[in-house]
Simulated assay, not measured.
Amino acid sequence: MPTSAAAGSALAHAESDVDREIAALGALDLAGLRSRWRQRLRSAPPPQFSRTLLLRLLAYRLQAKALGDLDRDTARLLERLARERLRRRATEARGRRSKAAPPIPPPPSPGLRPGTLLVREHAGQMHTVTVQADGFAWQGRTFTSLSEVARTITGTRWNGPRFFGLRDKPAVSSGGGQ
């Protein structure tokens, strides 16, 4: 376990270094932030950016470099949302009324990360499940699958991801036949 403790200590040290550097950025004027941008990011800062925006972006870049950036799927989702927003604005600027754009569905989840909380109300009671590296914790017990948790909560067989809203609900037929 010394490796884990050493990693935790290194992360805490990196966080405190980043915190100090961000605090120092707050004392800089616009010219100072532009200079720091060139030093740290090895590129010219966008000239139209205000001091506040430069400060925020530079702080984000410093944190991402020290502590890790967004994963690829999250970055793609954010880019897609930004493109959709720009498209809507362009449509509104042309003065046309557009139909409401369909919501962008979230990307398929490759898996739940440890620490994620899943909340579901069933029979008037709120149930919170914590995703762990080795399973799912609910009311002090650990289960190997969400389906086991759902079965324990409901007393019947359930698809666990569907019960906790992680999968689409099945399409309901309109009942027009036979």
Rank of each mutant, 00 (worst) to 15 (best):
A101F: 10
L54T: 01
L62F: 04
Q125E: 13
S147N: 14
R97L: 07
R162N: 02
L166M: 10
S173A: 14
A6M: 12
R120P: 00
R76K: 04
A10D: 09
F136H: 07
V172S: 14
R96F: 13
R38C: 06
P105A: 12
L57Y: 03
W158P: 02
A10C: 11
D69F: 09
H127M: 09
A66P: 00
D168T: 15
L81Y: 07
L112D: 11
G160K: 00
S174R: 12
Q125I: 10
Q132S: 15
L55R: 06
R85K: 15
E79K: 06
L86D: 14
R42G: 08
V119D: 03
G124A: 12
P106A: 13
N159T: 09
P103N: 13
R38W: 04
D168W: 15
D19Y: 01
G177F: 09
V149T: 00
A133Y: 14
A31H: 14
Q132I: 13
L117H: 08
E148L: 03
K169N: 04
S109N: 11
A93R: 14
L55W: 03
L166W: 02
A171F: 03
E148S: 02
P107M: 09
R88A: 15
P114L: 09
E148H: 08
S4K: 13
A150T: 01
N159I: 04
T91F: 09
T154F: 09
T74K: 08
G111L: 08
Q178S: 15
G155Q: 05
L25P: 00
S16V: 00
T128Y: 04
V172W: 06
R51Q: 07
A5P: 05
D71W: 02
T152K: 06
S98P: 07
L58F: 09
P47A: 14
S145V: 10
D29P: 04
R61Y: 02
S35H: 14
F163G: 01
M126R: 15
A150P: 01
F143M: 11
A27L: 14
I104R: 11
T130K: 08
L57A: 00
A82M: 12
L41S: 05
R120L: 03
L81N: 12
L81G: 09
G68T: 00
L62S: 08
P161R: 12
V119E: 07
A133E: 15
R157V: 13
A123W: 10
E148K: 06
G176I: 11
F49S: 02
T128N: 00
I22D: 00
V129H: 01
L118K: 01
